[in-house]
Write a protein that binds this DNA or RNA. Structure first.
Length: 215
DNA sequence: ACATTAAGTGATT
DNA sequence: AATCACTTAATGT
């Protein structure tokens, strides 16, 4: 599919036509395989991603180098953290890795500011993007602070299956434990609970989220 | 058949 | 919820 067609499909109702044309003109189309690092902490940001397909996980690191998930970027999203970083040539405070095979348009950051003045639809997009990212982060904080590990695990599995558009996750208990900053034993026990509650099914290297199974 | 890796479990803090 | 120590099960060579 052409860049124009993809953009139209994903953003047709979001951006006014003149803006769509400009995006196609300056945006560089990039296809990135699953699991590729895109931005690391400390990197200088030159472009802003517009996700056409796939998903990206955005993480931050605490003082002990524990990574934690901030939010996912999906089709039609852009990165709020990048937007602020852009202004004033700041460095990235986040790390971004593709969660699935991903297609995106890279927009040079100077265009961002230009469009902010020029296009109403761009302003709306930026603010809405901010708003939804903010809400996702609040949700992420909420579940860490107020919920137990079992709830966290279940949400983690659901979110992961959701962005992959696949209820069957190929993942080990150990990998899950690492991402939730806990131990493998804890995850194994909680996985068993979810299994008994009929919320998931499991096999070696595999977890299926039943709530997301197509009937 | 053997080694390696993933997952399950009881006991302790 | 974390850690230890150990077992059992699945998979690769």
């Amino acid at each position: 599919m052409t860049t124009a067609a993809l953009l139209k499909e994903r953003y047709e109702y979001i951006f006014e036509e003149a803006l769509q044309r400009e995006i196609i003109e300056v945006g560089q189309l990039r296809k990135i395989a699953k699991g590729m690092p895109m931005i690391d902490i400390g990197d200088t940001i030159t472009h802003m991603p517009l996700v056409l397909n796939g998903a990206i996980r955005v993480m931050q690191e605490d003082e002990n180098e524990n990574e934690y998930l901030l939010y996912y970027l999906e089709i039609g999203d852009s990165c709020a953290m990048t937007m602020t970083c852009c202004m004033g040539g700041k460095r990235s405070t986040i790390r971004a890795i593709t969660e699935t095979d991903t297609v995106l348009l890279m927009i040079p950051i100077h265009k961002m500011e230009e469009w902010l003045v020029k296009y109403r639809s761009w302003r709306v997009f930026v603010f809405e993007s901010y708003d939804s990212r903010m809400n996702e982060m609040l949700e992420a904080i909420d579940i860490v602070v107020f919920h137990n590990m079992e709830d966290r695990l279940y949400k983690y599995l659901k979110d992961k299956a959701m962005v992959a558009h696949n209820p069957i996750l190929s993942i080990t208990h150990y990998q899950i434990a690492t991402e939730l900053n806990t131990s493998r034993v804890v995850i194994s026990r909680l996985i068993k609970k979810l299994l008994l509650d009929k919320k998931i099914e499991t096999n070696r290297n595999q977890v299926t989220v039943l709530a997301l199974m197509p009937k």
